[in-house]
Amino acid sequence: MLALTRKPGQKIMIGDNIIIHVVDVQGDNVRLGIEAPKSVKIYRSELYEAIIAENKKAGASSHENVDLSDILKNK
């Protein structure tokens, strides 16, 4: 991992067409601006990681001998 220190107003370029702007720092919060082609997806990592974790749980849970046949009847 490459670690850089930047001040608000400075930027980081990733490859030829991704730019991270360090917009502002207020206390614990860093405001970032990201310029990237539409094809590059940008997510808050905790959301993406939560989805990975949930998919892994979902893939494991369907192994249980779960009986879903009465579900509609209860609804």
Partner: peptide, 14 residues
């Protein structure tokens, strides 16, 4: 859908 073990009624949807 994630089904918690032994607890079908608390299954959750993503």
């Amino acid at each position: 859908i994630t089904v918690p073990p032994h607890d079908v009624k608390t299954m959750t949807a993503n």
